[in-house]
């Protein structure tokens, strides 16, 4: 028996035709064939919907004991979307792992031997992963809103999708998760080590705001809105604070962070040895 037994190479020639569709198919197979994808996405969706149900139920239960001021400040949309803050951990971890697991297992060498055009690999990874996170993000944020408002409707304090800013917040929450995934992927591709990349990502999102907050207040007010977390979250704030960017400006700034991370990754992936 020889290596060429059976049909040999398929009809397509070795050097023509567009590459990206093939690599997209390959990256899609990679994404759907490891368990961490399912666990992380399930954790993200469960966080978004579950926390919405939990927080709204708790609020409804203690509604009678709340002061008028508390009731006036209540924002039903924000309440039902607060699970996003937990879900970003799962999406961030998955975004990092999508690329760092290839480096830690040695898979990256198989990948780059098969597709030496490393930027095409990065683009295909980013595309397939974003397609998944957009769907999971949007579906779970709509579900969280519906579940939350259904619970709040017991007290007739629910929000409606037609009210100003509500639809934008729901869509924005889903998009925030997707862009966060891209930022994670970019950081993972630059740092290449799972633990290091996660530390960098969560440092940027959670630690940096704390560090900035001890600066003089004029600085805080200038820099604060442009930090990745506050810029990104502006899109699902229904009552924008004075120290937040406008929803879409904030979202654009957040997208820029992801774009810069992916841009740097595109350069270092090619330059550095795998």
């Amino acid at each position: 028996m020889t290596a060429t037994s059976g049909a040999a190479a398929p009809a397509s020639s070795g050097s023509s035709g567009p590459l990206l569709p093939d690599v997209l198919r390959s990256e899609w197979t990679k994404l759907r064939s490891v368990r961490s994808t399912y666990w992380s996405l399930l954790a993200a969706a469960a966080s978004v919907v579950g926390l919405s149900a939990l927080i709204c139920s708790l609020y409804v239960n203690r509604y009678n004991s709340l002061s008028a001021v508390d009731r006036a400040e209540f924002n039903p949309t924000s309440f039902s979307l607060s699970g996003i803050f937990l879900a970003q951990l799962a999406i961030g971890v998955l975004g990092v792992l999508v690329i760092t697991s290839e480096f830690s297992t040695g898979m990256i060498r198989s990948t780059f031997v098969a597709v030496p055009q490393r930027r095409v690999v990065l683009a295909a990874k980013a595309t397939t992963f974003t397609a998944v996170t957009v769907v999971v993000g949007l579906v779970s944020s709509f579900a969280a809103f519906s579940v939350g408002q259904a619970i709040l409707s017991g007290r007739h304090i629910e929000a409606h999708i037609g009210q100003p800013g509500v639809l934008r917040s729901i869509i924005g929450a889903g998009l925030y998760l997707a862009v966060l995934g891209l930022l994670s992927l970019g950081i993972g591709a630059i740092i290449r080590h799972s633990a290091g990349a996660m530390a960098a990502l969560f440092g940027l999102l959670f630690v940096l705001p704390g560090v900035v907050s001890v600066l003089p207040s004029s600085w805080v007010n200038t820099i604060g809105p442009y930090l990745p977390s506050s810029a990104g979250q502006a899109i699902f704030e229904t009552a924008p604070g004075i120290h937040l960017l406008s929803p879409w400006t904030g979202f654009l700034v957040f997208c820029l962070y992801a774009a810069v991370a992916l841009g740097v990754a595109a350069v270092t992936l090619v330059r550095r040895d795998a």
């Binding site: 990679k30 064939s33 198989s110 597709v115």
Partner: peptide, 10 residues
């Protein structure tokens, strides 16, 4: 399969 697909192999 993922390696094959990246090169258009069935």
């Amino acid at each position: 399969l993922c390696l094959a697909q990246s090169n258009g192999i069935g």
